[in-house]
Design a protein around this nucleic acid. Structure first.
Lengths: 170, 170
DNA sequence: TTTGACAGTTCTATTTTAGAACTATAAGGT
DNA sequence: ACCTTATAGTTCTAAAATAGAACTGTCAAA
């Protein structure tokens, strides 16, 4: 499977991974959320090679995640800013950072804290159900095919039984 | 920057990307959440090459995201199941799927729906503040350095001003 | 004795990435 | 006029990762 094919899979996760699932894209987007807007800014903040940065920015613009906006004529210069589609990636960012904060920190603790302006406190992101507002965990969720399904992962307890589990073990 | 270095960055996002930020790992984990447990199951569901699958499974086990558990002696066979650390990736999965559902679906709609067992309804995941329970958006969040900071992206409105912005533009 | 399920491993060929150097426009200093 | 710096790329070659296919080994069932 190549990158391009990924984006055409009948699976929202596969498609999304086709867009952001590489080593650099999410880090570039992190910088966007931290207000970086220009080529050199990304490059020096991340240490990404200029070649790849140019590639990734192009891709993000093509995908409608960033918009390329001129901020100066002669020499033409542009800034990259998040579109709404890009801003909507924020929950993904937060979820990733939070997992890292929980499972990947060293003795010194979190590198970055997040403060909610409204309530003034440092917070963790919590995922809740849009319908009842309760926090979600994997076990409380049942998946079933939607209108765009094409016989892919529509299951909720699959695969395992079909192998006759000949557990004459030990 | 190589994959290994990424995991040592003083940034929870970089570290997490070092673990799950490639083309296949999240798809393998999706299968885990859909109850796939065995090598052949992953391979046939995803079409990943056996070589890479073996690699990725090893890495996930090393990282403590999957546990390799024998289910049969002679020929020794193992299943891969999610640890708590792995289960904790669920919010990331949901956030990714939801973004894909919102921005990457074709005319036919979502391939997969999620039902919350508790309330019985199909839902979307919503990110809220752990402190006040309000839904979060990027603009309402201010970041500041935590104990594990090392002078990386500790800012909240940086970079842009330091370039004297000579906008004699047009 | 052969076939099939299962879980890998090993190989070569392509694709991606890394790393460094180069291009181009213009401002500013001397 | 000449040199340096800032900015935003592009163009190379080398190294790393991935794809694709074939191969290995253990057992069960036919």
């Amino acid at each position: 499977m190549k990158w391009k094919e990924l984006e055409e899979e009948p699976c929202s996760m596969a498609r999304t991974i086709g867009v952001i699932g590489d080593r650099w894209t999410l880090l570039i987007l992190r910088e966007c959320f931290l207000r970086t807007r220009r080529f050199e800014g990304f490059q020096s903040a991340l240490g990404i090679t200029r070649h790849l940065l140019a590639e990734r920015l192009k891709k993000l613009v093509r995908q409608g995640i960033l918009r390329r906006i001129p901020y100066q004529e002669s020499p033409k210069r542009h800034e990259y800013i998040l579109t709404q589609k890009g801003l909507d990636l924020y929950p993904i960012m937060m979820a990733i950072v939070h997992w890292g904060d929980t499972h990947m920190v060293d003795e010194r603790g979190r590198p970055l804290l997040h403060q909610h302006r409204k309530c003034g406190k440092d917070f963790d992101p919590v995922i809740v159900c849009s319908e009842c507002g309760e926090p979600l965990s994997a076990k409380e969720v049942h998946t079933h095919p939607g209108p765009g399904a094409r016989g892919l992962p529509e299951k909720s307890a699959p695969e395992v039984r079909k192998t006759k589990t000949r557990s004459r073990a030990a």
